[in-house]
Design a protein around this nucleic acid. Structure first.
Lengths: 215, 215
DNA sequence: CCTACCGATCGGTAGG
DNA sequence: CCTACCGATCGGTAGG
């Protein structure tokens, strides 16, 4: 017994069943925010939900901000992927531009916790935002779409970044209002309603962005 | 001494020097959010800043949500007033519509803490939002402006609420991105820059909202 | 990845 | 409006 105990203690005890505590912590964070709100997010509660003691997360994240940065990065990757998927189904430049915006709004509704972390007032430092990483560069995708529309002659000349910022404002505003529940009084709550609304708003704006004889 | 003590105790002791602890608590809340971020807001710290013990706020607010509701209501009043002021300077319906949106964005920048409380994911109950109070009904003002534009023939037919929601999305998105510091990388930080940007975006959208021969 | 511990803050209430 | 108190949670670290 004396020789068996110590040997087994270090050999047979499985460290973490899932094998990927880091990912488990990210998922626990999202579930927590979605169920209890952002204010309830603490490293201790996240650890609790992931089934480890409150000191374990520090093996993977220096602090709460580092955890949130990882959540945000994952969110930008997913959002960019959704945008690409939806744009790929379209056959015209303006169709792709609209799809880009609709995907943004749908992502926000389907991943509200991700959206809150990505665009909330957290983060003391800029959080590269994916400008260095194509798979997470949602804004770059939008700018490219605008440029494509300009080349096709369906959107006016001008700095694509400035026009893109206008598109971003529109869909970000709608997404924020939806995620924060400000449109419940207007009877908008389902994904399908949000999709229709985002499509209508996007079309109105693209119309304003178009070339006109008088401009 | 035996008769003097008790009498004076209830008569001469000033309760609260400012005379309006309620207002002092609202101001302390805004200062706290603006200096330390929303996450740092606690009733205790608010009380501390107002110079009273942490039990005092409960004389004015049942809990934190009640305090925040009062902050939000004050914010909606101020925002609506700013919109009216700026609209009054315009001479055309479309000018007033644009001014309405620009005022929204400027209010957000100048009163970021108010804006965060007003549109954040707090509040378990709807928070009347001023639909019953004309002095705080910013959305009603926007709808009225849209209606005026329709009557003047500068905005297409259609449910004014739906068109108003599109305008709201645009300015709410720009305001949110600015308040949450997401446009610092784009070099936009001053009030004047925000005003110019809001004006340009609003004009693009109003153009899209206009009547066209093809629609 | 865990146990055990630190100092600190919090919301809320009793009772005056 | 204050004092004194409650139970609970938190971020973070030592040390293994």
């Amino acid at each position: 017994m004396a020789t068996r105990g110590p040997r087994k203690k270090t050999a047979e005890k499985p460290r973490y069943h899932h094998g990927d505590l880091r990912q488990a912590l990210l998922e626990a964070s999202l579930a927590l925010i979605s169920e209890e709100g952002f204010g309830a997010l603490s490293l201790r509660e996240v650890a609790r939900r992931a089934g480890v003691t409150h000191a374990a997360p520090y093996r993977h994240f220096a602090d709460k901000e580092a955890l949130l940065a990882a959540v945000a990065e994952q969110g930008f990757r997913t959002m960019t992927a959704r945008m690409k998927e939806r744009m790929a189904r379209e056959t015209t430049p303006e169709g792709r531009l609209g799809a880009c915006g609709v995907a943004y709004v749908l992502f926000a509704m389907e991943h509200a916790s991700h959206f809150r972390v990505m665009f909330g007032p957290h983060f003391t430092q800029p959080l590269h935002l994916g400008t260095s990483d194509g798979d997470a560069d949602a804004f770059g995708l939008l700018v490219a779409s605008i440029t494509e529309c300009q080349r096709a002659g369906v959107v006016r000349e001008g700095e694509p970044q400035v026009l893109a910022l206008t598109c971003w404002s529109l869909v970000h505003g709608l997404a924020s209002l939806l995620v924060d529940g400000k449109l419940r009084g207007s009877g908008i709550s389902t994904l399908a309603q949000a999709e229709a609304l985002a499509g209508a708003q996007t079309r109105l704006l693209v119309r304003g962005l178009g070339r006109s004889s008088g401009d």
